[in-house]
């Protein structure tokens, strides 16, 4: 969008790193599933699409590596996220090599990534997956509001 400028404030640091946490959580699930599928006969999966999605997630997170953080917690969380990313990237790469892959190595990498995500999650006070559409708290019932869809002038 013309004229849009991204402001690197603590608030945006926080939202950025939380999004990275969610993306890497999704990546952990995908690489774990790929490992499970590689060990299991007869699973009908979209392996090329899962690999494609994994690559997209790796790109999405790595694109922010050179960021200057203004918030210490976000920076610390980001450190653990990058460690998780690195281990997930190695696990994905090992899975691509197929039969040469030792399952112990992949499981070690996945377990390590999980621990790093847990550390980041604790620091940020955020979860790595979403439950808003299944169990979000709604303490107030929806109100009748004639202006609920005010689209502006």
């Amino acid at each position: 969008m013309a004229g849009f400028r991204y402001l690197c404030t603590a608030a945006s640091d926080d939202s950025t790193v939380r999004e990275q946490l969610t993306q890497l959580g999704e990546l952990l699930a995908i690489v774990s599933f790929l490992k499970l599928a590689s060990d299991t006969r007869g699973l009908s999966i979209q392996s090329p699409l899962l690999h494609e999605r994994a690559e997209a997630l790796l790109r999405a997170v790595s694109g922010r590596r050179d960021r200057q953080w203004t918030d210490d917690i976000a920076a610390h969380g980001h450190f653990h996220l990058m460690s998780a990313r690195s281990q997930l990237e190695k696990a994905l790469s090992a899975l691509r090599r197929g039969k040469l892959t030792g399952h112990v190595k992949v499981m070690t990498l996945l377990t390590g990534a999980r621990s790093e995500l847990e550390r980041a999650s604790a620091l940020l006070g955020a979860a790595i997956f979403d439950a808003s559409s299944c169990c979000a708290i709604h303490t107030n019932v929806e109100e009748t509001n004639e202006k609920a869809f005010c689209l502006g002038a």
Partner: peptide
Amino acid sequence: ESWMWILSKGPRFRSLQAGLNPADVLYLT
């Protein structure tokens, strides 16, 4: 298989991912 399919579909299908904990997937693996 269905969770794998949902994850393969990317961010536009994220609402279908709700409630799936990646750590549980790792444990199943």
